[in-house]
Amino acid sequence: MNMGTEKTKLTGLAYFGKMMALISHEIKNSLAIINENAGLMEDLSLMAKKGNPLDPERTGTIAGRVVRQVQRADTTVKRMNRLAHSVDNPVTEVDVAETLAFTLELGEKAFSTLGLRVEVGPLAGPVVINTNEFLFMNLIWEVLGYALQGGGRVETMTIAIRRNDNGVELVFSPLHAVDGERTPWDRALAEALGADIWPFADTRELVLKLPEILKTV
């Protein structure tokens, strides 16, 4: 593995930046809801001063909304923190399904804006590989970007996780169109992870193969 190439660094920064934009959007939405509910309380208080009694049920509902948004923002910040710490170790044990689910959670707003849903297929048991967690997430994002853009009108993309002799395979399907000549994903990123990516036109699948143990240089 050589994580130090300029191309890999730039791709990683772009991914990190995109995730930060999605996270900040999510936090902004929570703050906006808290802001409006605080404003609503202010409005109701002013109306109460003018003789319209304050309904305790109403204030309870408003407080409940604020609590929900604080919890939502807290979850978002925890995700941001986990993303930040994903760069801590060059190679670490990665639970493939769990990290894939986390990657999809981070990008969920981007998918929903496009009207797309991404699902992870059922898995018999945990699959653990030794790899670079951040680059793994970055590569999933890149491959998904290719699979979904190529998909055009695909509304649900499924990712199946399969073990193989050397490690693990992530199978993205269905692809709307597969162009075997095109390699829009970042080769440097795939090489840094010892990964192979194979598009299959006949089955409309894209297979991402990763080794069980990433060899460092």
Partner: peptide
């Protein structure tokens, strides 16, 4: 929750 509250305000 945002848009409903804003409409009320």
């Amino acid at each position: 929750e945002y848009v409903a509250t804003l409409a009320e305000r």
